Computed example of a mutant assay.
Amino acid sequence: MEHFQDWLLNLSPLVVHLLLFLLLLIEGIGTPGIPFEALWVVEGIFIHQGKATLPEAILWGTLGNWLGNLIGYLLGDRISRYLPKRARESLGIEEVRSLFNRWGVGVVLFSRWMGLIRTPTILYAGAIGMPFWKYAFWSFIGALSWVGIWQVGCWYFGSLVLEWWDKYKIYIVLFGILVGAIGVWTVIRKRKPNDAPSLDP
């Protein structure tokens, strides 16, 4: 990781922006294991050096990830139409439908932080009937918040934030789930008994 980071530091900021855009686009489609974290750290170093600004670093990452999300949505929607029912069930489309029926568009937001459901949510949002424009809006909010928080963290704390994530990620994720669950529970309590979550505009 350190050698890769040192190599990146010798590149121009524009090249690093483009690499971040590309890797987060690939990740945004639903591809796991993309090594983009070092780019956030390098962007943070460039910001400290005055070679880049925080808004442009967040913008490049957000646009790449958001575009990847849209591509993943369209691919999943098109491919799922040609799959037999048994294949659709084995891929977990019905599980994603259940998540959306229970939590609504909130799934698009909190799935950004949970790898196990992030890829299925991206690929099957269209297959379960979520309108493209609605997915585009909420996936942009999700990408902006995810990229923004990580980029601010890597700018302010550098590689230390990645070390903390590796060491404490299970607790961070559990805390995030707890906070999200409390928020959803609060909203549900305020809903009328006959209200039901809907994906309709």
Rank of each mutant, 00 (worst) to 15 (best):
V41K: 06
V41R: 06
V42I: 11
E43K: 06
I45P: 04
F46M: 14
Q49Y: 11
G50A: 13
G50L: 15
K51F: 12
T53W: 14
T53K: 11
L54N: 10
P55D: 11
E56A: 12
E56H: 11
I58K: 05
L59S: 12
T62I: 05
N65H: 12
W66F: 09
L67S: 01
G68E: 08
L70H: 04
L70D: 06
L70V: 03
I71D: 04
G72A: 04
G72D: 02
Y73E: 02
G76V: 02
R78A: 14
R81Q: 15
Y82S: 13
Y82M: 10
P84I: 05
R86I: 10
R86H: 12
A87C: 08
A87K: 12
R88V: 09
G92P: 02
I93Q: 01
E94L: 06
E94D: 11
R97P: 03
R97T: 06
L99F: 11
F100N: 01
N101K: 05
N101T: 04
R102C: 08
W103P: 01
W103Y: 09
G104Y: 04
V105L: 14
G106P: 03
G106R: 03
V108F: 01
R112A: 10
W113L: 10
I117E: 04
R118I: 02
T119P: 04
P120R: 00
T121D: 02
I122Q: 01
I122A: 02
Y124K: 00
Y124F: 15
A125V: 00
A127H: 00
I128Q: 00
M130K: 00
W133E: 04
W133N: 03
K134T: 08
K134F: 07
K134G: 02
A136M: 05
F137R: 00
W138C: 00
W138E: 02
S139C: 04
F140G: 01
A143Q: 01
L144E: 05
L144A: 12
S145R: 02
W146Q: 02
W146I: 03
W146M: 03
W150V: 03
W150L: 14
Q151N: 13
V152L: 15
G158K: 03
S159I: 13
V161G: 09
L162T: 07
L162E: 09
E163C: 06
E163A: 13
W164C: 07
W165S: 13
D166W: 09
Y168L: 14
Y168H: 15
Y168W: 15
K169E: 08
K169M: 08
Y171P: 04
I172S: 10
L174W: 12
L178D: 07
A181H: 07
G183R: 05
G183F: 14
V184F: 15
W185M: 10
